[in-house]
Amino acid sequence: MRARLVFALAWLCAVPGAMAQDTRKSGFDYMSRDSQAMQMDDLANPGMLSVLDGESLWNAPAGSSQKSCASCHGDGTVSMKGVAARYPAFDEASGKPIDLVGRIDQCRRERQQAPGLAREGHDSLALTTYIGLQSRGMPVSPPDDARLTPFRADGKALYTRRMGQLNFSCAQCHDEHAGGHVGASPIPQAHPTGYPIYRLEWQSMGSLQRRLRNCMAGTRAEPFAYAAPEFIDLELFLAARAAGMKVETPGVRP
């Protein structure tokens, strides 16, 4: 009895402590209940349509090699488990970091010997979403690779650098004013846990880079081009910032 009481007390003390440690919130927590329900129901989440397309692309032979993703990687639901949670990662061939979209494109061009996939195109988003789904519920786990450190530091510098006519940095909104509002929209903490997302405003799927370009246009800065090294560095930093949070792909956002 006494042991049980001590245990209960220890548990009571430990839980508020554990909650106080992590104040990070996913964009999911800022959404209305309707949007949350839409994301959680796989038969109502429009991102799952993209997953279905991704699954058939995974099994479709492409290019002069006539190989599909499945020819090498087998069953995607097994081999791709936790993969999206580790990206961006270091690419040995180029000596630079590469994001998941870039890796799929690289595989497509070099190993399948097929034409590359256009960034933000339907197929690229579908495959990324399908691979992303296999990590759903797993913690974001950026690779512990010292070669990525300088790139991550560059991402952090970009995150805190003011840009655009409005002269805002990412940090000013998403660190200092997270939880506040810009117009009627809540400002989330900017943890990229649900990408690629189905954004209701876009009425389509979009990658993290599309979202970042959106934000840059909002501060009236000239957005970086898709796949620009600056974006990969930012993605690296954001992944490290969200380390341990659960992957939600495919997320729904308003």
């Binding site: 796989d42 038969l43 109502a44 799952m48 349509l49 279905l52 397309d53 058939s56």
Partner: peptide
């Protein structure tokens, strides 16, 4: 190709 999700 059009895709549909059904919950019946």
């Amino acid at each position: 190709m059009a895709r549909a999700l059904l919950n019946v």
